[in-house]
Structure formats: structure tokens, C-alpha cells
């Protein structure tokens, strides 16, 4: 690609980002500091908290919570999804519950989790898990159900055991679908993380937002939000990359 072509392709993005930053910066001069701060002060606050080590500590705490919940969701959700697809009776029995829970805004369950499990680390992981697990289960089941019966027949014709059928056919076939679920779970888990940090014992980036709000430290508040946004964007990109990486063959299937 020539430099000119590259420029004309990326120009709208660069211009749009610069315009957004300028708008943020300027708009702060026409509003009150109680709820809005310019970009420059936000970034300064971010640098200051990074220097003091607060940012690192809070971000690590948040990521620890997030990754724990997401990992458990993947480890439980994907195998459970394939199992549901393979064992028909189990699927029919549980399908409605899964749909119900998939549709439930998980925030609604937080007070219940609070009264059941209190303020520790575990209930917060449970919240992230609940946010993340259903898209994984749902997409995996749908994927595993859509498996072409011919492929199972091939496996049977070559005298595959049930175990080998899982390794050779069910899991590789379902992987791209599970990945779609995981991409959604990555986004929903982040919502779960902030919700858990708000409504259960305050910690991490959620706590930073709350403290900023309570202390009228608007730049600090915006700095934490900005960080979560950047984190979300990076994780979504990672999710999309993973999905593409494991789904090369799927585009040609349907």
C-alpha cells in the first residue's frame, strides 16, 4: 500500500479521534468541574495515580477478579455446552433454564449473592462468572447442535469410540462457536467485574470510580473510566482475533 493510500484510509480515524479529544478538552471549559473534567486533567490524574502505584494495584486487583471469573466461565461453559448438545435429554431438561438465565440481567442477582455469600473475593468471582458463562454455554450448545450428522456418521463408520468422537469431531467442530461465545463473554465479564466492584466489597477500578465520584475528583473518576474503556477495546480485539484464528474453516462451511 502506498503512503498516500494508507493515509487516506486511516485519516478519518485519526481525524475523528483528534476531534473527539478536542471536543472533550473544550467542552470541559463550558461545564462545571463537579461532573466533567478536560482530557488533559484526566490524563494528568492517570499519570499521577500510576506514579503513586495506586493505579497498578487497583488494575491488578480488577484484572485478577476478571480473569478468575472468565477462566472459570470458559472451563465450565464450553464442556458443559458440548455435553448438553450430545446428551439430548439433559439439553431438553435444562434448555429453558439456560434461556431464562441468559436473558436475566445478572445485576438483578447481586443483592441475592451478597446476602448469600457476603463481601469476600469468591462472590465477586461468581458475579463475573455469571455474567460470562451463559453466552459461552449458549453459543457452544448451538454450535455443537449444528454439527453435520455426516461427520458423526464418518466417525461411527471408522469405529470411533465416544471419547475419540469428542476429541476428533465434537470439540474441533464446536471450537469456533465456543469462541463466538467467549468473545461475548469477554465483554460481558467486564461489565460483571465493574458491577461486582460497585455492589459487593469495593475494589479495583470500580472502587476508583466510586471514590472519584464521592470525593468530587472528576479527573480521577474519568481516568478510571477511560482505563476500563481502553481495556474493553483491547479485550474485544483479542476476542475477535481468537474467533478468527479458530474459525478459518467455518467461513467456507455454511
Amino acid at each position: 500500500m502506498s503512503p498516500g493510500a494508507r493515509w487516506s484510509r486511516h485519516a478519518p480515524v485519526v481525524v475523528s479521534l483528534l476531534a473527539g479529544a478536542a471536543l472533550w478538552e473544550l467542552s470541559a471549559h463550558f461545564t462545571t468541574r463537579a461532573f466533567w473534567a478536560p482530557l488533559s486533567e484526566t490524563l494528568a490524574s492517570l499519570v499521577a495515580s500510576a506514579r503513586s502505584g495506586v493505579l497498578m494495584r487497583q488494575a491488578t486487583s480488577s484484572l485478577g477478579l476478571y480473569l478468575s471469573g472468565l477462566t472459570v466461565a470458559i472451563l465450565v461453559g464450553a464442556p458443559f455446552g458440548v455435553l448438553l448438545a450430545r446428551v439430548r435429554a439433559l439439553r431438553i431438561a435444562l434448555e429453558n433454564y439456560i434461556m431464562m438465565l441468559y436473558a436475566t440481567p445478572m445485576v438483578a442477582l447481586i443483592p441475592f449473592i451478597l446476602s448469600m455469600m457476603g463481601f469476600g473475593f469468591a462472590p465477586k468471582v461468581l458475579v463475573v462468572f455469571l455474567f460470562a458463562v451463559f453466552p459461552i454455554v449458549y453459543n457452544t450448545v448451538e454450535g455443537a447442535r449444528s454439527i453435520r450428522p455426516e461427520l458423526i456418521e464418518v466417525a461411527r463408520a471408522f469405529r470411533s469410540s465416544e471419547w475419540r468422537l469428542w476429541c476428533d469431531v465434537m470439540i474441533p467442530y464446536t471450537l469456533p462457536f465456543a469462541m463466538t461465545g467467549i468473545r461475548q463473554a469477554i465483554a460481558r465479564g467486564l461489565v460483571g467485574m465493574v458491577a461486582a466492584e460497585f455492589f459487593l466489597s469495593p475494589s479495583g477500578l470500580g472502587q476508583m470510580i466510586m471514590m472519584g465520584s464521592q470525593n468530587f475528583d472528576t479527573p480521577g473518576l474519568l481516568a478510571a473510566i477511560l482505563l476500563i474503556v481502553v481495556l474493553g477495546v483491547c479485550l474485544m480485539d483479542l476476542g475477535r482475533y481468537l474467533e478468527r484464528r479458530f474459525a478459518a474453516w467455518r467461513a467456507y462451511e455454511c
Binding site: E150, L151, E153, V154, D168, V169, P172
Partner: peptide
């Protein structure tokens, strides 16, 4: 057995 729709594993 050889299948009409090949039955190859796409991955």
C-alpha cells in the same frame, strides 16, 4: 465406506 458428501473434517 466412501460417502457421497465426502465427509471430510474441515479442520
Amino acid at each position: 465406506m466412501v460417502f457421497q458428501h465426502f465427509g471430510l473434517f474441515p479442520w
